[in-house]
Design a protein around this nucleic acid. Structure first.
Length: 424
RNA sequence: GUGGAAUUAGCUCAGUUGGUUAGAGCGCCAGAUUGUGGCUCUGGAGGUCACGGGUUCGAUUCCCGUAUUCCACCCCA
């Protein structure tokens, strides 16, 4: 063949589209019940949006973005996540003047130039929500509650919620000092990356997976223990809110998250199954992001959820997902004389809402019956000279083999139509 | 970006210690005489053995490179 799908991309084929549509419907419905409205934003944006919005120092922006000049010389980038574009749209469309909070959800594809593994692709699908204008922990808890409801309705089990607070810029500045004091005598023991991080972003050193860095930071003070009083209060009230929603969680002081914009609350839903791509969903609060992108100071909170990973973990847990059903009716013309009548009848039934298949390959009646069985047709009707002459047909139930007689003229009429539309 | 493994039909896999036309199961198409599917039987289509070089009289098989997939690191969804 000429070429294959590019590395890290995949086709979603008809055989699996039912699973995708199922989770999409369920997510959209859950969001609707929680008061979130769908928004669709561009696949690419000006590169500076992501540099500012995701963070210039992040791996995502530094190493993983699909950035290209367009023919007019603008630097554009395929979105590596959903939040930045939604924030841009919020500002650009004056949503600050809408009744607060502004609650949005999206289902989109994002792009990262990364090495491929299971559950990690270069083009991947993300669901997410963003809530603007609510500063308190109540919205944090509501969003986590939305996810809990979504997972429950899907039948997803064995995931755990981990939460942390990384404070506001003030407590982070203060904490950076405390952390540097602790790390300075241990600087020689750190890896080269982390020695660079020491000045720029010492918080990330705690996230380093290098053995020697983990040893050096094992006894380091945690940011969570050095929050200023307002951040501490926010975190404590989030815990109370989660408890009153009966949502179980564990505190994980190690959650830092790789995007620069987070403040205070950060959280992840992680599958308890083995496997390195265990994070299904991650998010948190980003109280400085709208302002950083040129809007008025506006608190925000949201998450991104990896759809491929969600489906992967549903599979791993054996959660059944629907496949697309076969047609309500297969209409089999017997003999060439019946073909125009069959096509006309199929058209009429389809316009009345029945899903009908009929022969397009000139097959024998026997072959048509085989085909009807293979595509999962619920019923079949044979249409030949006899039926056209008498105006009577037999409706065959493919599961039981039972046949029921009906008038041809009533087949498209309401009674038989109703029977066809009712699931067996 | 760094390591390791794999790649033979649409799918899951055999196989060739280097030698004529490369196999199976499933799937697909057709048939088993009258107008009825699932079971069974018969036949058929479908492969430059991932791609490109090298060694050789001869390479799907051996060697090198590349691509892709999977695994680990890293990162995250």
């Amino acid at each position: 063949m000429l070429t294959r799908a590019p590395k890290g991309t995949r086709d979603i084929l008809p055989a699996e589209i039912g699973r995708w549509q199922h989770v999409e419907r369920l997510f959209a419905e859950t969001c609707r019940r929680f008061g979130y409205a769908e928004i669709r934003v561009p696949t690419f944006e000006h590169t500076e949006l992501f540099q500012r919005g995701v963070g210039d120092t992040t791996d995502i922006v530094q190493k993983e973005m699909y950035t290209f000049p367009d023919k007019a010389g603008r630097s554009l980038s395929l979105r590596p996540e959903g939040t930045a574009g939604v924030v841009r749209s919020y500002i650009e469309n004056g949503m600050a003047s809408l009744p607060a909070p502004v609650k949005l959800f999206y289902m989109l594809t994002a792009f990262r130039y990364e090495n491929v593994q299971k559950g990690r692709y270069r083009e991947f699908h993300q669901f997410g929500v963003e809530a603007f204008g609510a500063a308190g922990p109540e919205v944090d808890a509501e969003i986590i509650g939305l996810l809990a409801a979504f997972f429950r309705s899907l039948g997803l089990r064995q995931t755990s919620l981990r939460i942390n607070s990384i404070g506001c810029p003030d407590c982070r500045t203060a904490y950076h000092g405390i952390l540097r004091d602790y790390l300075e005598p241990r600087l020689e023991g750190l890896c080269r990356d982390c020695r660079n991080r020491f000045d720029r972003n010492p918080l990330r050193i705690l996230d380093c997976k290098e053995e020697r860095c983990r040893l050096a930071t094992a006894g380091a003070p945690a940011l969570l223990d050095h929050l200023d009083p307002p951040c501490r209060d926010h975190f404590d009230r989030l815990r109370d809110a989660l408890s009153s929603l009966d949502i179980a969680y564990t505190i994980d002081k190690g959650i830092v998250r790789g995007l620069d914009y987070y403040t205070r609350t950060v959280f992840e839903f992680v599958s308890d199954h083995v496997g390195t791509q265990g994070t299904i969903c991650g998010g948190g609060r980003y109280d400085g992001l709208v302002e950083a992108c040129g809007g008025a100071p506006t608190p925000g909170m949201g998450f991104g959820l990896g759809v491929e990973r969600l489906l992967m973990h549903l599979d791993a847990q054996g959660v059944p997902l629907p496949v697309n059903p076969g047609p309500d009716l297969y209409l089999a013309p017997a003999g060439d004389g019946a073909r125009p009548a069959a096509a006309r009848l199929a058209q009429g039934l389809r316009e009345r809402g029945v899903s009908v298949e009929t022969d397009l390959c000139g097959r024998s009646l026997k072959a048509q019956m085989k085909y009807a069985g293979k595509i999962g047709a619920r019923r079949t009707v044979v249409l030949g000279d006899d039926e056209l002459a008498s105006g009577r047909v037999r409706i065959r139930d493919m599961a039981t083999g039972a046949e029921e007689e009906a008038g041809l003229d009533e087949l498209a009429g309401s009674d038989v139509l109703a029977a066809l539309l009712v699931a067996p």
